[in-house]
């Protein structure tokens, strides 16, 4: 009997709740460490970046206005759906040459990290808010609000756990994101988009692009409607360029370069706070 022919998957980008190819029609080939070609991947263009930012901005108002409880439920739902697809992601990581046990650990840590941030959604506001005992006759309080549209350059070396570790605190906090996935290992991010798509995450909240950092970092960091940029690759030249461009519209810039993405030391609400603005409101007290 003839061996069954596998159905190969077309890996696409994900913006505005839709799976799209690059408007440029370009692609690149992703390989494993041995140089074996695994798949063709979309090579995003400057226009794809612009479109994705526009989409993220459009989705921001609704996402920021969702109740923290609702955002927490959705984050938890992503974890649930990912749990059900553990095998697929383990397999995708192993395609790149990661050992079985390590791949499994990474997928499980990813799920747990989503659960961790899901829990923060309705708590960081309490931890970082304050009622301020002003000397005058006013009721005065401060609370965090999302910064807006965040451009995330997901870590190149940790395509799934790293991606979720940088994405979860950003969207938990009510921001929308344009994410440039790992360039070396783009496949898990493309598949993670399917998880997002089936987890009640509104379209446009997470926009995942694949492509070359050398082409896209500049456009992400220069974009005047991006409010913050999160970069974790640790390349100092790139950091310098990002901050120089960030100054065009006073973007918040967060650089981070953890050695071990599985470390629980990375789990804290201060990463959520990095993408929050503190708003202080004054009310007079009187009859």
């Amino acid at each position: 009997m003839a061996k069954r022919l596998d159905v190969l998957k077309t890996y696409k980008m994900y913006t505005g709740g839709k799976f799209i190819r690059s408007e440029s029609g370009r692609y690149f080939v992703t390989e494993n460490k041995q140089g074996k070609e695994l798949a063709n991947v979309c090579r995003a263009s400057r226009k794809d970046v612009r479109d994705a930012v526009k989409t993220a901005r459009g989705a921001w108002g609704d996402w920021a206005a969702r109740s923290p409880f609702n955002r927490g439920q959705i984050l938890y739902r992503i974890a649930e759906v990912l749990e059900g697809r553990k095998e697929q992601f383990r397999h995708e990581l192993m395609q790149y040459g990661i050992q079985h046990k390590k791949a499994e650990t990474e997928v499980e840590a990813t799920i747990d990290r989503l659960v961790y941030y899901a829990g923060w959604s309705d708590k960081y506001g309490q931890v970082f808010s304050s009622v301020n005992p002003v000397a005058s006759s006013h009721f005065n309080f401060s609370m965090p609000e999302p910064t807006g549209v965040v451009a995330i350059v997901a870590p190149d070396d940790s395509p799934l756990l790293g991606l979720v570790s940088v994405l979860a605190p950003v969207i938990t906090g009510g921001n929308t994101a344009v994410v440039l996935s790992s360039e070396t290992y783009p496949l898990p991010a493309a598949s993670f988009a399917e998880v997002l798509h089936s987890s009640d995450v509104p379209g446009g909240v997470v926009n995942l692009l694949t492509g070359y950092r050398t082409e896209l970092l500049e456009h992400l960091s220069r974009h005047m409607d991006v409010n913050a940029m999160y970069y974790t690759d640790g390349d100092e030249d790139a950091q310098k360029m990002i901050q120089e461009h960030a100054s065009l519209n006073v973007k918040r810039v967060v650089f981070d370069h953890p050695k071990d993405w599985t470390s629980e030391n990375l789990e804290h609400p201060y990463t959520i706070l990095d993408f929050q603005e503190i708003k202080t409101t004054w009310h007079p007290v009187g009859y």
Partner: peptide
């Protein structure tokens, strides 16, 4: 209105 206990920025 300003006050030392009140964040500004």
């Amino acid at each position: 209105k300003f006050d030392p206990t009140s964040p500004f920025g």
